[in-house]
Amino acid sequence: MGKRVLVVDDEPNIVLSLEFLMKKAGFEVEVARNGQEALEAIARQPPDVLLLDVMMPEMDGFEVCERLRADPRGRATKVVMLTARGRDSERQRGLALGADVYVTKPFSTRELVARVKAMLGEG
């Protein structure tokens, strides 16, 4: 069975692109539109990779990440945080809260795919 990727973002256009890219790279893709949906998807089965937008209404990406890490089953999931904030401190914060990779929007899709593959040992 292929590796599973969960894409979480409240902006449909970027979700569309990410879904396309990840499928093209050979992953199984699931999509969530907000933090709550993401947590539900994780509760069903933690993905191998979580592409997580930080700025979402109600529950932000930091909180999703924290809850994922609080769940023992979620420890193995690789987390890629996507943020619309260009600040260095955000990166620090994301990494401190358990993200593996922190990516500032806009980003290079080729690079993102390469990093996800590398994390899963498929680089």
């Binding site: 902006e11 970027i14 569309l16 619309a84 929007k105 806009p106 899709t109």
Partner: peptide, 18 residues
């Protein structure tokens, strides 16, 4: 303002790269 730009720009770039 800073944040508002980034979302659309990310989508635009991803789409154009695809």
């Amino acid at each position: 303002m800073d944040r508002a730009w980034r979302g659309p720009l990310a989508s635009l770039r991803a789409a154009s790269e695809i």
